[in-house]
Nucleic acid binder design. Structure first.
Lengths: 224, 224
DNA sequence: GTCTATACCGTGATAGAC
DNA sequence: GTCTATCACGGTATAGAC
């Protein structure tokens, strides 16, 4: 590992990323971060200011890279698909596979970052505060593509399907090991390929089902 | 509200439930809980012992009730279905609707409890520690029923589908308001009926898709 | 038995001295 | 960049009031 070649600043970010992902914002002290990174307590403050600013710095560090690779995956599948546009499956593939690839790099930093993303996205407090600024633009691109792939769909249905997909993804990113226990070891949270190979057809089928039946909202809607 | 009629002990549990759901275990102090409940700091200690024990007490308080109503819903749909057994849709309905009903009681305690469940289930730390003891038995009943409804399915596929369903549910329970923002107010986290009316066909379609195609594990499997 | 007041002592975030 | 002081906050135990 070239870990010891990293600057102290980067080691603080890496350690903070790991600990915040595991214990959340309040479960981690600057002292533990400093100890883990092998630096003095005050250095985090010197580089990043307040604890909250360090948290934001960690969250922002990899966001642009992630958005770029997902954006690029969408563009690729769109140009491959030509004028008719990509299918639901292809769009979802573009939305999800870059995350699998990030988790599968040997770099545990990406695994930790994505677990942190899961923590933030699932939190009523942090989700409201921090998700929109970094991820709305990208998500809206995908929502637009999905609307075009499902032209008969009601807008609300698309958003609810996206919500369900996002939930499945979030739990996958969180790496809780729950599926390991439930399945008696037959499935593993750490088996990313299996996770995404199942998640993609699962969510695509959900989109197709919900968005093909006219108005699944339960109320009395008429037209087919 | 009959809130002022509650015992101090119950007010501590209610306040702890609300604050833990919003801020997580470490984001809440016993002093804030005491203040919120209108009691002395030491009273939580008197009734529940350590902070961790209070956390567990909150988590355990409604678990049996919840398990009972879901268990009953499964039994009901099984006896209604007769010898052929219930469909995937009916089983998922039995798994999810009791949660919608709990969220829709005027009692905000259930909403808070289920948001806390989302926090715990999505946490790599707490999930490992606390989910199995209270919920494995019930989940395994449902997994068994699903296996019977999808006899051609590989066991791993069932578990991965359950994982995806659990993720969609978890994000719904968390009440993050993210869908409100993304949809520009067209969909609301607080609109439980819409949430479950979409989640049920979405996840059922996912189960059917993944569990009908022989082995979606990606490797070179032949048939279908 | 239920509850309050209070004390203890560790931990934490942050700022200022070096 | 680093070390150290400060000062608030937090978990918990105890003594005793009601």
């Amino acid at each position: 590992m070239a870990a010891r070649k990293k600057s102290k600043r980067d080691r603080i970010l890496d350690t903070a990323e790991e600990l915040f992902a595991l214990h959340g914002y309040d479960g981690v002290s600057l002292r533990k971060i400093a100890t883990g990174a092998g630096v003095d307590v005050a250095l985090a403050n010197y580089h990043f200011g307040k604890k909250l600013d360090l948290f934001s710095a960690v969250f922002e560090r990899r966001a642009a890279l992630l958005n770029d690779s997902r954006h690029q995956a969408l563009r690729d599948c769109q140009s491959k698909a030509g004028k008719k546009g990509p299918s639901v499956e292809q769009i979802i593939e573009a939305f999800l596979r870059p995350l699998e690839m990030a988790q599968e790099t040997g770099d545990s930093g990406w695994k930790n970052y994505l677990a942190l993303l899961a923590y933030i996205n699932n939190s009523p407090y942090w989700g409201r505060l921090m998700m929109s600024k970094l991820f709305d633009e990208l998500v809206n691109e995908f929502i637009e593509a999905l609307k075009q792939a499902l032209p008969q769909a009601e807008e609300e249905d698309i958003y609810w399907c996206y919500h369900n997909m996002s939930g499945a993804l979030t739990l996958t990113l969180a790496q809780t090991g729950r599926i390991d226990t439930l399945s008696g070891g037959k499935c593993l949270s750490s088996d990313f390929q299996s996770a995404y190979d199942h998640m993609i057809p699962f969510t695509a089928a959900g989109f197709r089902k919900v968005c093909s039946q006219r108005s699944s909202k339960g109320k009395s809607k008429g037209a087919m």
